[in-house]
């Protein structure tokens, strides 16, 4: 039984097939890589899994139940969340508030509880505060607690987005180019952080990345996409030596040289 399974998933935009008949099986506790040239359909697959787009065809299963007919927030509820290629933080809120907001459904109190400051509210807020502080520490953001998100350096914004996703206690985390725009040192730190998060939160991770050394280092298994179709699937060593993959990445003209 796989944690996430895509069966023959297709997404068309007008005449363009952004994703065509893709099959994908991600097992629990795995770090799974999704790579491919620009416009291959990687982000579109994330948008399909998280319900931002509806599939044209095919089915998506999580924990053996269908999720492609759920709304985005319901998919988050069952334990799937993500980061975005172009960072989408709550820009005018602080680092702490970004994380605190995302902790919201780890406690249940009604709006009336809030209005009357009931015991349930006080207890709930205390719990959320503790969780947020814990995440700040794990992600090394505690000294930026009160910095407004849009004023954080770029690398830390990416990190905060991961922290915000972890606040949901997801089972499956989708990372869309988490190392984009990072320098080699930051990328190395990120690698560590992703591994640490996987172990500590018992996560399964699906990651899109263009940094090949990061992907090859990090992933247990990789799927390569090209023009919306699966080009290859396998362990990093196989992928690196697959002639189709080399060709797709270098372009036909270059491959002949």
């Amino acid at each position: 039984m796989s944690l996430l399974e895509l069966k023959d998933v297709t997404k068309q935009f007008g005449g363009l097939t952004a994703v065509g008949n893709v099959n994908l099986k991600v097992e629990e506790n795995m770090i799974y890589g999704l790579i491919g040239p620009n416009g291959a359909g990687k982000t579109t697959i994330f948008n399909l899994i998280t319900g931002i787009y509806k599939t044209t065809n095919g089915e998506i299963y999580f924990n053996d139940s269908r999720i492609d007919d759920l709304k985005s927030f319901q998919i988050a509820d069952v334990g799937v969340t993500r980061t975005f290629q172009n960072i989408r933080l709550f820009k005018n809120l602080t680092t702490y508030e970004n994380i605190l907001t995302a902790c919201h459904f780890n406690t249940e109190y009604s709006m009336l509880d809030a209005v009357f400051r009931s015991k349930k509210y006080v207890k709930g807020e205390k719990l959320l505060h503790e969780q947020a502080v814990e995440l700040l520490e794990i992600m090394g953001l505690e000294n930026r607690k009160d910095v407004v998100a849009e004023n954080l350096p770029y690398g830390l914004q990416r990190r905060l987005e991961i922290a915000r996703a972890l606040a949901l206690r997801p089972k499956l985390l989708l990372l869309d180019e988490p190392a984009a725009g990072m320098n080699p040192e930051e990328t190395l730190q990120l690698l560590d952080l992703i591994r640490k998060a996987r172990d500590q939160f018992k996560l399964t991770i699906l990651v899109i990345e263009h940094h090949m050394d990061l992907i090859m280092n990090l992933c247990d298994k990789i799927t390569v996409l090209n023009f919306g179709k699966e080009l290859a699937e396998g362990v990093p060593d196989d992928i690196q030596n697959n002639p189709h993959v080399i060709e797709a990445y270098l372009g036909e003209g270059d491959a002949e040289c």
Binding site: T81, F90, K91, L93
Partner: peptide, 10 residues
Amino acid sequence: EEEMASNIIG
């Protein structure tokens, strides 16, 4: 602040 991000945090 950000409607799509709100969705994906549930």
